[in-house]
């Protein structure tokens, strides 16, 4: 599995700190442990997925439904619209979610037979 860029940047920063400390003669066992911890964390990393069913293909249209997987587990969400973590796709994007799938309009060309549950966006963190 590819390690996310954020984790790689963090590990690189820790290594640079250790290299500087080594040059100064102040490198400790704890400094090296932070790198081991960062590697462990990167290994555990699982992509978080947010499904949002929206009323239209517009990013600001209201949510009709939502499902969330975080750290490889499904996270229960309230049924009440006002208690959902986001009221629209754009709100989720402002909180750092990236869209990885847009509603597939090819599937809704005949509105007499295909409905499903609104327009589904899939986002990841």
């Amino acid at each position: 599995m590819a390690v996310p860029t954020a984790h790689l940047t963090h590990i690189r920063n820790q290594l640079e700190k250790c290299r500087n400390k080594l040059a100064q003669g102040s490198l400790t066992r704890d400094d090296l442990q932070t790198i081991i911890d960062a590697l462990d964390e990167a290994e555990r990393h699982v992509q978080d997925i947010l499904y949002i069913q929206a009323a239209s293909t517009a990013l600001e249209s209201p949510v009709l439904g939502m499902s969330l997987y975080a750290n490889g587990r499904r996270i229960p969400l309230p049924s009440n619209r006002t208690e959902l973590p986001y009221q629209s796709v754009i709100e989720a994007m402002r909180d750092g979610w990236h869209i990885i799938s847009f509603p597939n309009t090819a599937l809704v060309m005949d509105d007499s037979i295909t409905y499903g549950l609104g327009c589904e966006f899939i986002l990841e963190k």
Binding site: L64, M66, S67, P78, S79, G116, L117
Partner: peptide, 28 residues
């Protein structure tokens, strides 16, 4: 049991609903 009022008019295979969770307007 929770039901989604009006959903008997919506087309979707159950196999494509399995990722759904919170649905606005659903009724327990």
């Amino acid at each position: 049991t929770e039901v989604l009022p009006g959903s008997h008019h919506l087309s979707m295979s159950s196999h494509f609903m399995k990722h759904l969770d919170s649905i606005v307007d659903a009724r327990k």
